[in-house]
Design a binder for these strands. Structure first.
Lengths: 222, 222
DNA sequence: CACACAATCTGAACGGTATTAAGATTGGGT
DNA sequence: ACCCAATCTTAATACCGTTCAGATTGTGTG
């Protein structure tokens, strides 16, 4: 602790990195502000010049994780974009793979996803919605099925990731993970396409979902 | 503290009740073992004669919450069971309604769902699987679509609940919640039914997503 | 270059936390 | 009546988040 300069240089990201590493090593709650500070080589109170509280660090970390997920998903979707649902299948696979590669970090995000983050961030929901719009334009998805479909697909993918990360569902091989993700996405899309206009079992023509399913892209919970 | 008997009588459930009430009042982390003990009227260390640690209480609470959810879902499914997917729609609505009625408690369960709980418990997954079996028997779902379908439906319902409870999606009215749950379940079921035997690009041209989704031929599962 | 100022970090402290150990109290069985 | 095991209490330990006064350093201004 003698050779280190008094000013760290970029303590903020060092704290984020170390907290994330500890989460990766010991689980979602296997870290403390103090230990992170010690590991970085500064005093515990130094963190408070970069984060208003421990919770602020948690929030910032989950935003950073979210940003990385966004980049990864845009890449995956762009690379796989072809005919039909391939882009969305890549979205689902990328989402679930990301969760399983770093279960603890994914659980951190699942639990503390930042509410008031940067609205321009590459949010999974945005990417998904854009890809669904493409499907409508290309005629692969009926326009009538589009409103609210983003949340149906997102729920399916998010739920699969959550079940896997929390150990309620187990898939042995990476191939099985991809297959399950693909099946979830394709089933949901087929169901969305076939159900909407006058499907089987959909009782009385309910009012359209455009008004009632309020998707707030940049909104957050109270 | 003078008129209370030295032995509480049923301290274990009293601790669980109080912890749950505090979670309901102040959020997932708005409680401590000490405060729970004080609220019940015993010393902080008394809890350790009923739970090995704070985490054990967390686990026990999440198991109890799970059991209640199970009872509720069996009731809902049995009551609504009719032709076709009505039972599963009731399952989805019950699941999501339960989550929204007590968001903090639901988040507690979402985060700490017990891994090694009672295997005979009424687990949502069991109820769902049984209902899917009924659909196969009644001919509403092709037998070929049955294997693994439970996890597809569960993922969709679980994901919807998770997105709502974490504020990533917002539905204003209870009717909108029910509608969204119904749409998720029916879409998934229709998709499962239509996709499986010879769907769009599903079985044979099993493309290798390891190449297509990411550049790296890598990935792992838990 | 000198000087002031803001940003950054340290050290010590406060109250709260989980957890443990040793001892007091009580109910049930013999 | 008595012993034992279960239950609860008191006290103590170690860690946690957070705050505050003060030391150290970079930066811009004359």
């Amino acid at each position: 602790m003698a050779d280190r300069p008094y000013h760290h240089g970029d303590l903020r990201t060092a704290l984020l990195d170390t907290a994330e590493a500890l989460i990766r090593e010991r689980g979602v709650d296997g870290w403390s502000l103090r230990e992170v500070s010690v590991r970085v080589g500064v005093s515990p109170s130094a963190a408070y010049h970069h984060f208003a509280s421990r919770d602020a660090l948690v929030q910032a970390l989950s935003q950073r994780v979210l940003a990385r997920l966004g980049e990864r998903l845009t890449d995956a979707v762009e690379r796989a974009r072809g005919d039909g649902a391939d882009g969305l299948v890549a979205f689902g696979c990328g989402y679930v793979r990301w969760a399983l590669e770093d279960p603890a970090v994914a659980r951190h995000w699942l639990a503390f996803n930042a509410g008031g983050g940067d609205p321009t961030a590459l949010h999974p929901h945005h990417i998904l919605a854009a890809e669904l719009d493409r499907l409508v334009e290309s005629g692969d998805l009926p326009a009538a099925a589009r409103p609210g479909a983003d949340f149906v697909v997102w729920a399916a993918v998010h739920g699969l990731a959550a079940l896997l990360v929390h150990g309620l569902m187990r898939l042995e091989t990476p191939q099985a993970v991809d297959d399950q993700a693909e099946r979830v996405v394709r089933s949901t899309l087929i169901g969305l396409a076939r159900q909407t206009p006058p499907p089987l079992g959909w009782p009385t023509p309910r009012s359209d979902y455009t008004e009632r399913v309020t998707g707030a892209p940049d909104g957050q919970a109270g």
